[in-house]
Simulated assay, not measured.
Amino acid sequence: MGAVGDAWTWLTTGANWQGESGVWHRLAEHLWFSGVCLAVSCLIALPLALWLGHIGRGGSLAVNISNIGRAVPTLAVLVLLTLTPLGRQGGLPTIIALVLFAVPPLLTNAYVGMREVDRSVVEAARGMGMSGGQLFLRVELPLAYPMVMTGLRSATVQVIATATLAAMAGEGGLGRIITAGFNRNDTAQVVAGALVVGALALLAEGLLVVAGRAFDPMRATREH
């Protein structure tokens, strides 16, 4: 039947979806980890990036520092954090590692989006008497919105895919299905777990694309 066919059989077996080791429970854990990490990452990266983009100073340094996180393997960070006292704090090492991984695309895209706003438009808004806050909310942020959403989509997909590493630290999530499959030498379970993670990432990407278009403050302008 092949690996994919065997994985489909595994996924369509009801018993594999039930209980604490079932897909539904692991999916809920995965969504919780991913949601918390994305929320924390957004709270850290977006205000900083938007503010630095607005004032036009310090952004390049912040982006370069955040991009260091991309050069450090997430698994290595997770393992090191697990070996510290933080390793006794539940899922904290996983959350920290994923936040470090998610901040760079959020910070970079939001900052670049702000800096790519047409300066002539900004100056025209200033000439109309807009304050700094009005300029940010009514001109810069709406024009930077597509880049901000691009960063959010990128970070979301990366976090959902990488959150499988939580299993390496003994935490839950869909990664536990994959590691359990490896431990049992069950290729069907490994492939099935990978398919669920991939489907979840694609679903999240699609939902964010739809949400991005629906909440675009300049949707009407962009469509003409």
Rank of each mutant, 00 (worst) to 15 (best):
P73F: 09
L165C: 05
I95L: 15
G5H: 09
L11H: 05
V121A: 12
I65P: 08
V72S: 00
F182W: 10
G181P: 01
P104R: 03
L50G: 04
T13G: 06
V159D: 08
P146Y: 09
L202K: 01
N185R: 11
V197G: 02
I95G: 04
E223C: 14
L141I: 12
G127C: 03
L31T: 12
R70E: 06
G113D: 08
Q134D: 12
A125M: 00
P104M: 03
Y145L: 11
P85Q: 07
V112D: 07
G90M: 01
T12F: 14
I160H: 03
A3K: 15
A214I: 13
G35P: 08
G132V: 06
R138E: 13
L75Y: 01
P104Q: 01
R184A: 15
G19N: 11
A144N: 05
L11T: 07
L152Q: 04
R222E: 11
E29Y: 10
M130Y: 14
F33K: 08
V159K: 07
P73Q: 06
C37S: 15
L106R: 05
G14D: 08
M147C: 14
A214T: 13
V103Y: 08
L207V: 10
A39D: 04
A15N: 05
M168V: 13
V122Y: 02
A71K: 10
V197F: 01
M114T: 05
F182P: 02
S21R: 15
R222L: 11
N67R: 10
F101G: 02
T74S: 09
V103N: 06
G129S: 12
G69S: 03
A62T: 11
T162Q: 02
T156I: 05
I177L: 12
T156S: 13
A3C: 13
G173P: 12
S34M: 11
I95E: 09
E140V: 02
A28I: 09
G14E: 10
R184L: 15
T13K: 03
N64H: 14
L75S: 02
I44T: 11
I160E: 02
G170M: 00
L48D: 01
V117G: 00
S34F: 07
A62W: 08
T187H: 06
V40L: 15
M130Q: 12
L107C: 06
A62K: 09
A102L: 10
M1F: 11
D6H: 11
N183D: 14
R57G: 00
N185W: 10
M130V: 13
I96R: 07
L152C: 12
P105A: 07
L106S: 05
L174F: 07
L137W: 13
A3P: 15
L43C: 15
L50S: 07
I177M: 07
G58C: 07
I178Q: 01
E171L: 13
N64I: 14
F101S: 09
C37G: 12
H224W: 14
R153E: 02
M114K: 04
V36H: 02
V121I: 10
T94V: 15
T12D: 04
G172H: 08
R153I: 06
F215G: 03
G19F: 13
P104T: 02
H224M: 14
L143S: 05
V99Y: 08
A155T: 06
A166R: 03
R57C: 01
G127D: 03
L165Y: 05
G127H: 04
L27S: 12
I96A: 06
G2E: 12
V103Q: 07
P146M: 12
P73E: 09
A220R: 12
